[in-house]
């Protein structure tokens, strides 16, 4: 069972990182930025491009990959969402635009790199470290640590820095923020940049562990979004609980039922939550500032 526990921790923390990155963008914008999945994927492919095709040293390639992926997120906001906001498009239009963006970005990756599995972790495959009877590889330990640190970091950032507080302020009421002199456009752009950078890190870590195809980011994002929804939007503890619940359900389903039920179980939980607890674990609505 210790191996199952390790597997759950690893998946949960990866979902947590994705959910954090996604909620950072979702809080202030309130729409499903599907193209986030393409940011996850493109970060990993950019590292492949930089380190394997252009022979840039690996650590530098990772930094470049994260920076470029963050830029892609920024461009999504600057070139697509911001002009739409200016013209007051209905909420559904954003989601459709973001699906379009996702398809565009994903196909670009497919065309350039091909649809077959690519490897960025060129280290020789070897038996993992044994801890309490469970096997875990170095990259998996790194994933767990990095996710934890970033999760704590994001929460500290949101609660104790001026920029973080303004992201929360815009989440509550963008118009009031504008009146008080906080530019909601600027804050949203910052949220996109940071969220995309976090997503990039998650994508690179995942690809280093289990390799990649041009669509791998989408599955990852789906689990992250489900975790965010069942955790309750806007709640830190909720994100943690949501990610843990999704990962636990998946791995216990694989262990006691059959591997093919892993995805089904995830969505059953999502549906149950949507019916009985639509606001998630935290059970609270986002606080609105009353004027």
């Amino acid at each position: 069972m210790s191996q199952v526990f390790t597997n759950i921790s690893l998946s949960a923390l990866l979902y947590l990182l994705i959910a954090s990155s996604y909620s950072l963008i979702y809080y202030p914008t309130k729409f499903f930025h599907i193209a986030h999945a393409a940011v996850v994927t493109s970060a990993a492919y950019l590292v492949y491009l930089f380190s394997i095709q252009l022979s840039i040293p690996f650590p530098l390639a990772i930094v470049d990959g994260i920076a470029t992926a963050a830029l892609i997120g920024m461009f999504c906001e600057l070139l697509v969402y911001r002009p739409m906001r200016k013209r007051n498009r209905p909420p559904l239009a954003y989601m459709i635009a973001s699906i379009g963006l996702y398809v565009l970005l994903q196909n670009t990756i497919s065309l350039y790199f091909g649809d077959d599995t690519k490897v960025i972790n060129t280290a020789e495959i070897s038996v993992g470290h044994q801890i309490f009877g469970a096997y875990i590889t170095t990259i998996q330990i790194i994933t767990i640590c990095v996710s934890l640190v970033l999760f704590v970091g994001v929460n500290l950032f949101l609660h104790f820095t001026a920029t973080g507080k303004s992201i929360r302020a815009v989440s509550s009421n963008p118009e009031l923020c504008n009146i008080y002199g906080i530019s909601s456009n600027k804050v949203i752009l910052i949220a996109f940049t940071l969220g995309s950078a976090l997503a990039a890190i998650a994508g690179i870590l995942s690809a280093m562990d289990t390799n990649m195809t041009p669509t791998f980011g989408f599955n990852l994002l789906l689990y992250g979004v489900v975790a965010m929804i069942i955790g309750g939007v806007g709640s830190t503890r909720g994100l943690l609980a949501g990610s843990l619940l999704v990962a636990t359900a998946q791995h216990l389903a694989a262990f006691y039922l059959d591997t093919k039920w892993m995805d089904a179980v995830t969505y059953v939980i999502l549906i149950l939550f949507l019916i009985w607890k639509p606001l998630g674990f935290s059970g609270k609505r986002l606080k609105k500032v009353e004027v």
């Binding site: 199952v4 289990t210 998946q250 694989a254 262990f255 591997t259 892993m262």
Partner: peptide, 9 residues
């Protein structure tokens, strides 16, 4: 993507 659950079982 990952088959760790299946392999663990």
């Amino acid at each position: 993507g990952s088959y760790r659950g299946m392999l663990t079982k």
